[in-house]
């Protein structure tokens, strides 16, 4: 390849134009192809994401097939100054749902049944989602979507709550924290710290930079790996640890605090929303 060392001849303006045209055409053709592939595959990707979401929710709440899941989407209607909740069975496209509207200060402003596939009113801003698991007509647990500001971008999470609002499980479902540092907050052992704390304990939850006790870390790892006895070790140490703050990931205090704040805010918001919503959604199949 020694020939490559010879300097190339100088380019005239016509030649430069041809190069630019060549690159532009290549880029445009590539972009057109990618657009076509995206349009062909995106609904399958969305369907797969939905299946993954449902599996995660059932897993987090340890649900069996007797429980049904209702998805409640929350919207803001800015010009009417109202909050709209729309509930429908999760993943059943076209199933009839129920819509409840509140004013911003929490007074009911109407409710109605909506037929499946009814489009949303224009101008609604999505605020968040929650999932209510029902068994024999009563709530068997909740999964609430929450988010907070991480070290780089927002961190999205699912918080699973029992009917008494204690934490059943927590998952970070989307984040862009640094691998090896902030990304550790998405690992099973970190989220294990939240499990089984009551709603009142979560409301006061703080973060500490103190080192995590070794026995607690071992119990969290054992529970994360679902090894036999892991949950029992976790339960044995919980009375000591539940009064203590969340131990931050070393070198990632901001990410740890972001997740903790996110969980606290998510639980707090959900309890207040549910107090409003429950009388209206009680009859939903």
């Amino acid at each position: 390849m020694s020939a490559a060392l010879r300097p190339l001849p100088k380019l005239g303006p016509a030649e430069i134009l041809r190069i630019v045209a060549s690159m532009t055409v290549a880029c445009l053709a590539g972009a057109a192809m990618l657009g076509a592939v995206f349009m062909a595959t995106d609904r399958y990707r969305a369907a797969a994401a939905l299946r993954g979401e449902r599996a995660a929710i059932r897993d987090m709440l340890a649900l069996d097939s007797t429980a049904t899941l209702v998805e409640v989407k929350q919207f803001l209607a800015p010009e009417r100054r109202q909050v709209v909740y729309r509930a429908a069975p999760l993943g059943a496209e076209g199933a009839p749902g129920h819509e409840v509207t509140f004013t911003l200060d929490g007074r009911p402003a109407g409710e109605r049944d909506v037929a499946g596939g009814t489009p949303l009113a224009a101008g609604l801003v999505p605020l968040g989602r929650m999932f209510v698991a029902k068994r024999a007509g009563v709530p068997a647990g909740f999964v609430v979507e929450g988010e907070s500001r991480g070290f780089k971008k927002r961190i999205r999470m699912f918080v699973a709550l029992r009917p008494d609002f204690s934490i059943a499980d927590m998952r970070v479902i989307e984040h862009e924290e640094d691998p090896g540092l902030g990304a550790e907050v998405a690992t099973p052992w970190f989220r294990g710290q939240f499990v089984d704390r009551s709603a009142d304990e979560v409301a006061k939850l703080d973060v500490t930079k103190d080192p995590m006790p070794e026995d607690w870390r071992a119990a969290l790892l054992a529970m994360a790996k679902r090894s036999p006895g892991g949950s029992a070790r976790h339960a044995a140490l919980l009375p000591r640890e539940r009064a203590k703050p969340i131990y931050a990931v070393t070198g990632a205090t901001i990410s740890s605090r972001a997740v903790t704040d996110g969980v606290r805010a998510t639980v707090d918001h959900f309890r207040r929303r549910w107090a409003l919503l429950e009388p209206h959604l009680g009859g939903l199949r």
Binding site: M23, G30, M33, L34, V37, T41, D42, A48, A49, G52
Partner: peptide, 23 residues
């Protein structure tokens, strides 16, 4: 650069397909 674009287009197409069908 044009080879790189060609490879990138095919990789992205396969990437999207895999994300859709083998999540």
């Amino acid at each position: 650069p044009v080879y790189t674009i060609i490879i990138a287009v095919w990789v992205s197409a396969i990437d999207m397909t895999l994300a859709a069908f083998t999540p």
